[in-house]
Write a protein that binds this DNA or RNA. Structure first.
Lengths: 146, 146
DNA sequence: CTGAACTCTATTGCGCACAATCAAATCGGG
DNA sequence: CCCGATTTGATTGTGCGCAATAGAGTTCAG
């Protein structure tokens, strides 16, 4: 066996579990969100808009979700086609496009209210471990996005 | 403010940091791997092949990296075009396609040997926290893939 | 007032991810 | 030996992610 590159061993990498876990969670969300024809990033946009309780610019959503306009623009257009949001130029600053929830977008809130609980249930993780994980990840993000 | 759906608050979700951290790490890898024209999943394939020290089937790679053939087939064809691997039917079981490293694929090993160290450096995470994070993620993956 | 710098979104192009489907090869019970 | 079930990889179609670029709108120094 080759041990000349121990630092390249697959099970030494922290990146692979992070990458695999993220995709595994996304797949689980896809199962839960398929019932209401939402993808996981679309669901995240709705979370942000429900919480903001008012229009958000594309850039605001990008900041909240760490996504850029190249991802968000087509995603938001699909959500507009699905009747979940409207897109309108800000009359004050016409560079901005304001995303607002439609009634249909608001209505979905009830239908996904149980999703977080159902997800956590499938993760088999204690409250304490969950907090520890979120804490480590938040620190990692802060460090990497400097 | 709306507090009727506390479980839908963005900062309560564990999914978002996981998702954002994974993409942040991938972006960092893209910076490091761009020098040798590798993408992050391609780099993971190489890690697996270097370690196996012999041909792997597409399915073997899929198991190791938690990826399926729909992702791997075109990815491996691109790596074949780049002269890093060869793809050949297994003469014993002709359903299988064996992926082997070329000399060019082996040569990259030296050129990326410092990547893990450079990544960890930018993550600003102690050895202990790194182990704790990997441990939590491994348990999460095991639970979600049941 | 004006033009250069800056901000914000859209577009393009490429590379994943993955569900669904398919076809070829292999295996296994009868 | 044969046929149905299983395994394996390829294909197709949709939806992200993101770098690079473009272009309209805004700001601000001079």
């Amino acid at each position: 066996m080759e041990d000349s590159y121990p630092q390249l061993a697959l099970d030494q990498q922290i990146c692979l579990p992070l990458y695999a876990a993220s995709r595994a969670v996304t797949r689980r969300y896809a199962d839960l969100l398929g019932e209401v024809s939402l993808t996981y990033p679309q669901y995240l946009c709705l979370l942000a808009l429900w919480e903001a309780d008012g229009p958000l610019g594309v850039g605001d959503l990008g900041t909240l979700l760490h996504l850029d306009s190249g991802t968000l623009t087509p995603l938001l257009k699909r959500m507009e086609s699905a009747g979940l949001v409207t897109r309108a130029r800000d009359t004050v600053d016409e560079r901005r496009v304001l995303i607002s929830l439609t009634d249909g977008g608001w209505r979905l809130r009830d239908r996904v209210a149980d999703v977080p609980a159902r997800l956590v249930e499938g993760m088999g993780m204690s409250e304490r471990d969950g907090r520890a994980l979120r804490d480590l990840l938040d620190r990692l993000i802060a460090e990497l996005e400097r």
